[in-house]
């Protein structure tokens, strides 16, 4: 039982589960593509969870950060022919830098104002993607290749495996972070600004830290996207994607490490699942409608997120079959 409770092992198991489409024979490539969408949104979602779930800050501009890294990595590897690892570092440093500058301005704003400021910033960045066609290919977009790591050019499955490994490592890093003094300060800042300040937390600094972390994660997600789908165009990096990231964090479980992953799986997987259903799947639009209704229903019963569903079920079984002595603690 104790082994199962080990978080690192849990994250590894999540990784293994994600690798099943690659490990099993005869899985259609469309499934790998779907799973890759889950993984890159989960990576960005992890960062948004640090920002939103743990630190209580909001951003509607992170999709643009993903796009920036995607374009940069495509440009650096293809036009400048830099090695993949180096181009990733540069591609992630850019949103980090911009995230810090935006953060330095934005952290003085709260709530709605912060949302609007980041929304505006994201849209400006997206317009730049359209305008700067020497760099981004304009509306038609830019292309990229599967990366070469240590002389080995990855296949589609290889790139997917790389993304899953990255996700697992990032989950472990976030787990470490939120269970340390940094995470504690973030949670304190979200829960009681006064207490955080009185206990010596520099609120300005910690908001910036959470902005920086989420920008880096968004950048990594963008890099994964461009080297998996090998194409990037400006229609992807809209505020709608930023909203989706927030939605998946809330649906999966805010302020939990696994929440973003659960959210990403459900938000990408459920519509596909519905489309496969007999009758329902055949009527256009109906699957999405049902997904929407399902999510509302689930959130009514599990407002803290889907990640608490198993625990909720176990608790209710325990309650039903004796064990009443322990009561609700």
């Amino acid at each position: 039982m104790r082994l199962i409770r080990n978080k690192y092992l849990q994250y590894l198991l999540v990784g293994v589960a994600f690798l099943l489409p690659v490990l099993l024979r005869g899985v259609p490539t469309a499934t790998v593509t779907l799973a890759a969408s889950m993984v890159y949104t989960a990576i960005a979602g992890l960062g948004i969870n640090v920002l939103l779930g743990y630190s209580g800050q909001i951003s509607l501009g992170h999709a643009a950060f993903m796009g920036l890294s995607a374009y940069l990595s495509a440009y650096l590897t293809k036009q400048l022919e830099l090695p993949f690892i180096l181009s990733v570092l540069i591609a992630v440093a850019a949103p980090l830098l911009i995230g810090l500058i935006l953060g330095a301005i934005a952290v003085r704003l709260e709530g709605f104002y912060l949302a609007i400021a980041t929304l505006g910033f994201g849209e400006i960045l997206r317009q730049l993607f359209i305008e700067m066609d020497w760099f981004t290919g304009g509306f038609s977009g830019a292309s990229a290749t599967y990366p070469t790591i240590f002389g080995q050019t990855l296949t589609k499955n290889g790139m997917y495996t790389f993304m899953v490994c990255l996700l697992v490592v990032l989950m472990m890093l976030v787990h470490n972070l939120v269970h340390s003094s940094t995470g504690r300060a973030m949670i304190a800042m979200k829960s009681s600004r006064s207490a955080a300040m009185a206990m010596g937390v520099n609120v300005f600094q910690y908001k910036l830290i959470s902005f920086a972390i989420s920008s880096v994660f968004a950048g990594l997600a963008g890099v994964c996207y461009v080297h998996f789908f090998r194409h990037v165009d400006p229609t992807v990096w809209t505020a709608g994607l930023s909203l989706n990231l927030i939605a998946l964090v809330v649906i999966g479980g805010a302020a939990t490490v696994g929440g973003a992953v659960v959210g990403a799986v459900v938000m990408h997987g459920l519509p596909e699942l519905m489309k496969e259903m007999p009758i329902i799947g055949e009527i256009p639009g109906l699957p999405l409608l049902i997904v929407g209704i399902l999510m509302i229903i689930i959130l009514i019963f599990y407002p803290r997120g889907l990640i608490f569903v198993p625990r909720g079920i176990i608790d209710s079984i325990k309650k039903r079959f004796g064990n009443a002595k322990k009561g609700e603690v």
Binding site: N176, S181, R184, A188, S192, A195, M199, G200, V201
Partner: peptide, 26 residues
């Protein structure tokens, strides 16, 4: 901080003592 265990609330009082930065903690 209602989301944290009691002991973590108390640990918050030692926040300025912690030497580790973001990366060391990560």
């Amino acid at each position: 901080i209602r989301e944290l265990p009691i002991i973590d609330n108390v640990l918050l009082g030692a926040h300025t003592e912690f030497k580790a930065g973001v990366l060391a903690n990560m």
